[in-house]
Computed example of a mutant assay.
Amino acid sequence: MAKQFDAISDDHRGFIETQHMFFCGSAAADGRVNISPKGMDSLRIIGPNRIIWRNLTGSGNETAGHLARLNRMTLMWCGFETRPMIMRAYGTAKTLHPRDSGFKEAETHFPPTLGARQFYDMTVEMLQTSCGYAVPFFDYAGERDVLAKWNEDKGQTGIETYWDTRNRTTIDGMPTYIVKDTPNA
């Protein structure tokens, strides 16, 4: 049976912090719904109703484009290894690009890394837990180093060029505001 909560408790926090990955769901009023798997030590619980997560450079930039049009987000964790639970955080979020106030403060919660494209600052309005009885067991084998090597090979200038050429719009053509010539620059 699903249970809803108006804040992240210590027990919820403990479950989230033991997960090696989470999923982010976002959608604008039109276009495609996006669900992305995330990992690489990229999420922090800042308070009982606040989560920030670091979005590293990747092939798509759907979440930024969706939030620019409709600032709702869902995060989901699944207990793959031990505890059979599914947890979802529902709320609103704002995108913080490297040029935005708040980006530098968000960076202080994470170890330095090349390729941080955005941070998402989420206000959690509701947390829901449900059984994860049908979620299979998976063993964690470790982090992949492919993205870190890709970022190192590109360097900061190459990454910014990639943002400009590959991350300016969503697959539905919505602007992501990753480059400086945007309204919030």
Rank of each mutant, 00 (worst) to 15 (best):
Y90Q: 05
A93L: 03
K94F: 00
T95G: 00
T95M: 07
H97V: 13
H97T: 12
P98Y: 02
R99I: 13
D100M: 10
F103N: 07
K104L: 08
E105V: 11
A106G: 11
A106D: 09
E107M: 08
T108D: 05
F110V: 08
F110C: 07
F110N: 09
F110G: 05
F110H: 08
P112S: 06
P112K: 03
P112H: 05
P112R: 03
T113Q: 15
T113I: 09
L114S: 12
L114V: 11
A116Y: 01
A116T: 15
Q118G: 00
F119D: 02
F119T: 04
Y120K: 02
Y120L: 15
D121M: 02
T123M: 01
T123E: 10
E125I: 04
M126K: 14
M126T: 15
L127Y: 09
Q128F: 02
T129E: 14
C131N: 07
C131M: 08
G132H: 07
Y133D: 13
A134Y: 11
V135E: 09
P136I: 05
P136M: 07
F137G: 02
F138N: 13
D139E: 13
D139W: 03
D139Y: 02
D139A: 14
A141G: 09
A141P: 03
A141N: 10
E143T: 05
E143C: 01
R144K: 13
R144A: 11
